[in-house]
Amino acid sequence: MAIRVEHEVHQRRKGRNFGVGALLACFIGLIFALTVVKVLQLGDARQFENFDHVARPAIVPEEGTSE
């Protein structure tokens, strides 16, 4: 038996579903805000680029040169 679009269980679980949705939204917001804070705390802009997951020869210090 297929569940109808307006199945009774949808109504019964409405509050719980909205609750789970709100929790997931909060979780996404939390991780995003934490990422922003963590990245800003790095200070040095070049360190942001270290998170690219792509080799960036331009940001690797050459031998014999200081920072």
Partner: peptide, 14 residues
């Protein structure tokens, strides 16, 4: 599972 859900009298809330 669907039947048991429909038959339960109380649905736990948040």
């Amino acid at each position: 599972t669907d039947m048991s859900v429909q038959n339960s009298e109380y649905e736990a809330g948040m």
